[in-house]
Every structure is written in C-alpha cells, then in structure tokens.
Write a protein that binds this DNA or RNA. Structure first.
Lengths: 168, 168
DNA sequence: ATATATTTTCAATAATTTTTGAAATTTCGG
DNA sequence: CCGAAATTTCAAAAATTATTGAAAATATAT
C-alpha cells in the first residue's frame, strides 16, 4: 500500500471511529491528519487535504485546542498560524481521559449524590430499586474516578508494566 | 426530592450521557428506566413512561438485547413480552466493554496492522511519521485490548481491591 | 494609517440520525 | 385453523447535528 492511500484510510477510519465516541467526524479527521503530519500545518493545508470549508476547519481546530490535543505553533517569518498535534499517544489518551472525566464523569457523580437522597420508604420496592441502582452506579463511578486520576498521573512505561502484573 | 422526579432526572440524564458516548438518547433512556424498575416491563409500559412510539421502543429494546444489556422475560399467564435489565452494574460495564472491544477496538487493530505495512523509505519524513504514529497507536491499543480481556473476566470485588493496590 | 492577509463568527443550508405510525407479519389462545 | 393480540418493519417526517461561505473582526507588514 502506498503512503497516500494509507494516510487516507487512516484519516477516514479515525473519523468513523470518532463518531462512535461522540466526537464529530471532521474533528477526528483533523486530529488524524495532524498525527501523521511531520510538520505543523496551516488551516489552508487542512482545508485542502480534507476538502472541508474554512469555517468548519477553524471551528474544529479550536475545539481540538480546547481538548488539549492540538496546539498553535508560531513559525518565524510566517504570517499564518500553524497547528500541530501531540504525537505521544499515551499523552493523548491521558488528555482525553482527563477531559471526559471532567466533562462527564464528575457531573454524573454529582447528580447521583443528589438522586441518592430521594425521599421515601426503602420498604417500597420502587424506592429500594432506585436507591440501590443509584448507589451501585455511584460506587463504581467513584472507583473509576480514582483509578483514572492515578492513571492520568502515570507514565506509560509504568502503566504497561505495573498493570500487566495485576492483570496477569 | 420525590421518587417520581428523581427517576425522571436519572432517565433524562442517563439519556444525555449516552449521546456523548455514541449511544442514542432513547436507547439509554430505556436502559435507565429498566435499571430503576423492580419488575420487568412491557413495550407498552416503556412507551407510556417515556412517551415514545411503538416502533422506536421496539427497535431500541432489540438493540439493547443485542448489546446483552436487556433480556426478555417470560411471565406465565401473560401473553405480552416483558423486559428487564441486568442490575449488577459491574456486569453491565463488563458487557459494554466486551461489545465495544469487539465492535471497535478489534477492527481498528486489524486496520492498523495493514496500515503499518505501508511501502516507502523510512528516511522519508512523511513515511517515518506515519509508521511511528500507527505503531504507537497499535502498541497502546494491544495493551488496552489485553487489559480489557482480563477485566472482562474479573470479579468486581477483585477488581476494586487489586487495582487499588496498584493505583495506590 | 492603510491595505492586505488571516482568522473568526454565524445564519442559512445540507447531511445525518432519530422517530413516528400504519401496514405487514408473527404469535398464541381457544 | 381462526381471529385477536402482540410484535416487527420500514418509508416518510421530524429533529438534530454538521457544514458552508460570506461578512465581520482581527492582525500584520509596509
């Protein structure tokens, strides 16, 4: 397989992959393109490579920057802005975990705290089932939260080694 | 907070939560409803509680069954079908992990295998960056794959205890 | 300061996904 | 086997989400 074809396949699959995880196709594709690009790219480069509009490109680049996955690069002598993606995949994964934890897991845990305090007699089956479900989700959620916190701080080499001893 | 309100909030939040993870709102809501229902429900119960059409209800129940999160229950003397959700959240999580691994992670790893074999000189920066990126994603993906396999087999109590020793 | 290049915004449009509801099919008791 | 109940299907409609492109805002060189 030729490089051009391989790159295209990777970009397109990464985009499809993203849509299964609540990330829009274009955002994932821009990320993929930057991941396989040795040099930083401009908005125009990205527009051209992916055949997308200026507005779309701009919005999704900014979103990637918000996620901490892409950053602006200043190149001396160049007027345009250049963009580059973090290439260390372990860092990328940690960054995504960190953001999703903050955006989704933490608010969910706060909601569960409030819902657990529902009024009513635990002898009522409806109440019991509700409280039990909420509590068990909360328990697992808290566990996940702590585990992910530790993972975010970990080094990849440590992670791979240590985790494999446990999950033998 | 009253039970009715709490249930509604849980169902609606679980639905919103799902949309961030590539799961459609209704499917997540039906799942939430069944999670907090002590008894198995019929299609009509679900339609009424969530105010959704028969077709929608039916399709999403079947999808939940495909995911292994909901099952049909036969109730003697009743003609209608009843549905119930697995209440053990650890089992639910393992089931979701198992399915997503099969549906997404494994196909992605196969793609990466093929893409890694791209033609071209590794002295070419484009080629080198492409191959390095693909390789490192693959490496981490394989690691995740193994780790998840072990997790799928694990007991919750074991998981919580043992993992916490590592992630101290 | 001005002209020009570049980036950003956002209302309109397009594409995609979800939902409906009625018809077709299946199931099951009698 | 018949008829009613229940389930399933799926084309059309609605809702949601993504994309465009042109205008506005901003930045920079001279």
């Amino acid at each position: 397989m030729k490089l051009t074809e391989a790159r295209q396949q990777f970009i397109s699959s990464w985009g499809a992959f993203g849509t299964h995880w609540g990330i829009n196709r274009t955002m994932a594709q821009i990320h993929a393109l930057l991941l396989v690009s040795p040099e930083a790219l401009t908005q125009d480069d990205i527009m051209e490579e992916l055949n997308i509009s200026r507005g779309n490109t701009n919005m999704n680049i900014r979103e990637l920057i918000n996620w901490g996955l892409v950053e602006r690069v200043l190149i001396t002598g160049e007027r345009k802005e250049f963009f580059t993606a973090e290439k260390d995949i372990w860092k990328v994964v940690k960054q995504i975990v960190k953001e999703r934890k903050k955006r989704e897991l933490e608010p969910m845990l706060h909601l569960l705290d409030r819902l657990e305090a529902v009024e009513g007699d635990k002898k009522d089956k409806q109440v019991k089932t509700f409280v039990d479900t909420i509590s068990s989700i909360k328990k697992l959620g808290r566990q996940a939260d702590k585990t992910l916190d530790t993972m975010i701080k970990a080094e990849e080499s440590w992670f791979v080694g240590a985790l494999m001893k446990v999950f033998k």
